[in-house]
Nucleic acid binder design. Structure first.
Length: 493
RNA sequence: CGGGGUGUAGCGCAGUUGGUAGCGUUCCUGGUUUGGGACCAGGCGGUCGCCCGUUCGAGUCGGGUCGCCCCGACCA
């Protein structure tokens, strides 16, 4: 292994450090000089853009439209929903002034005390308040409903400790906010969007997720129900990858969003909100990567195929160039993104390692040997297997290979996850085993006390009450009280 | 904000009892190379985090201060 990558700690040694270095070395992102913030580099952003595009189409297919609401929220808005402000107050950035002036020595600027805002503005930590303040003007009749808006934006939460993609003070996300005439319709929408997220995670990111509903203590501030998708990282920790909230009439009441129903009676609107963030990038990286670097699912790879020529003499290179041109053309015709890297300032070995680090799903290599034999070397990133194929029909072969890689990394992730989900009924055993990571399905008496004790003893939390798990009554492993269901417990990011 | 570390070249680090600022790598130039991160030669790059003190003299000793990292509390 090359010197540059000696720093890339093996996954098994220190997963956190490995993750961080991978993000930087693969050119995805880096820490900004600005406290807690992240610079997403072009390669990382290209992946995020691809995710955005697909998600956006999926939202629109359910009738959602994009809109945009202000970054700054008047402080008073946040105090209108008691639980909501309780949840976010501690991590809000506040704008207090609107002007700077040069200082007395004229070598810098200071905040102009004369420019103090009468009412402070909060940089949005999430937009429920400003959006529902707006919906008040939009919604008067049942005929105005539903309102189905989504916005792609940044939000800011003043986090104590940050980690690239997983938790940064500022992050990019989408937040959907819907208003409905009935409780049933809103609940159905919240669940529908969770399903969209789960589909996206599984089919595009190749990340299997557990869908479920959050316990009361883990619920979004101001929600009646929070639905979640939980993914398992390679160190066995859970990553909450997307949430969808049924907000009841809390925001309708807080912002006085009333409409007249068919019976001409006033009613408060029912709300949902749902979001996924650049944290999905973290999920993508931590689910598939190996010691050679990133592994990207073909569906999200900005570059799906790279072609690398071998040759030294200009005449030889020209011959390879000529042989590659039609391959590139055919691949592009099949809708595959491909790059022919015949730059002569890097040696082939360097390119191999570099494109592996960046997770390019398929690599083709062509040299004098292949020109003679009419062959090409094909390497798939997920297994690192190489094979020599005839040039004839190579584009079609690559297309099916890409599908197979997508399928294979998903299967691998599912297998890994399933091997690390355990049913557990004994608390002592649980405390010991949870240290090693994994998801635990345990009976829970439904009390916050039990939940708090588990967290205190083990740092693990109830991730959700999972859907699709056959629920049998039992006994809470902590309190010994009767329990109606098994919940998913894990340590998490 | 509590506990523990750490600040010296872009990155990773060394620097002995206080005495001219070092190593590896990156980067640049030239040449030879090119089927798994090339080699040789030359070169650029630092007010040692900041302030004050002790001293003829401080990267090194003392006091303060700031930043960053790890572990907690908080969290998509």
């Amino acid at each position: 292994m090359a010197k540059e990558l000696d720093f890339l700690t093996k996954r098994s040694v220190d997963y956190s450090k490995w993750y961080n270095e991978l993000v930087v070395k693969a050119d995805l992102a880096e820490q900004s000089d600005v406290r807690g913030c992240m610079v997403i580099k072009p390669y990382g952003y290209a992946i995020w853009e691809k995710m955005q595009r697909i998600l956006d189409d999926m939202f629109k297919a359910t009738g959602v439209q994009n809109a945009y609401f202000p970054l700054l929220i008047p402080k008073s808005f946040l105090s209108k929903e008691a639980e909501h402000v309780e949840g976010f107050a501690k991590e809000c950035a506040v704008v207090t002034h609107y002007r700077l002036k040069t200082n007395e020595t004229h070598d810098g600027v200071v905040v102009d005390p004369a420019a103090k805002l009468e009412e402070e503005l909060i940089i949005r930590p999430t937009s429920e308040t400003i959006i529902w303040n707006t919906y008040k003007n939009w919604i008067h009749s049942y005929r105005d409903l539903p309102v189905l808006c989504n916005q792609w934006c940044n939000v800011m939460r003043w986090e104590m400790r940050t980690r690239l993609f997983l938790r940064t003070s500022e992050f990019l996300w989408q937040e959907g906010h819907t208003a409905h005439a009935t409780r049933e319709e809103a609940e159905a929408r919240a669940q529908q969007m969770l399903k969209v997220y789960a589909d996206f995670a599984e089919h595009y990111m190749a990340v299997p997720v557990v869908q479920g509903v959050k316990s009361e203590t883990e619920r979004f501030a101001g929600a009646l129900d929070t639905y979640t998708i939980e993914a398992m990282m390679q160190d066995g920790k859970a990553l909450q990858s997307g949430t969808s909230h049924f907000l009841g009439q809390n925001f309708g009441k807080a912002f006085d969003v009333q409409f007249l129903n068919k019976e001409n009676k006033p009613e408060y609107a029912w709300a949902t909100s749902w979001g996924v963030s650049t944290r999905l990038m973290g999920a993508l990286i931590m689910t598939h990567s190996d010691d050679n670097g990133l592994v990207l699912p073909p569906a999200l790879a900005p570059l799906q195929v790279v072609i690398i020529p071998i040759g030294g003499k200009p005449a030889q290179m020209a011959a390879v160039d000529a042989a590659v041109a039609p391959i590139v053309e055919k691949l592009q015709a099949l809708g595959i993104t491909v790059k022919y890297d015949n730059s002569d300032n890097k040696r082939p070995g360097f390119k191999f390692a570099d494109y592996e680090l960046k997770g390019i799903p398929v690599r083709l290599v062509l040299g004098a040997r292949d020109l003679e034999n009419g062959t090409v070397e094909v390497m798939r990133r997920d297994t690192l297997e190489k094979e020599v194929r005839p040039l004839e029909g190579i584009a079609e072969y690559v297309k099916t290979l890409l599908d197979e890689i997508q399928e294979n990394i998903y299967r691998k992730a599912v297998t890994f996850r399933d091997e690390h989900i355990y049913e557990c009924d004994n608390y002592e055993e649980f405390k010991e085993r949870v240290k090693g990571g994994g998801f635990f399905l345990c009976h829970w008496d439904g009390t916050a006390e039990t939940e708090a004790k588990i967290k205190e003893d083990t740092q693990a939390t109830i991730r959700c009450v999972p859907f699709g798990v056959e629920q049998t009554p039992g006994v809470d492993m902590v309190s010994g009280k009767p329990a109606t269901c098994r919940v998913l417990i894990a340590r998490s990011y």
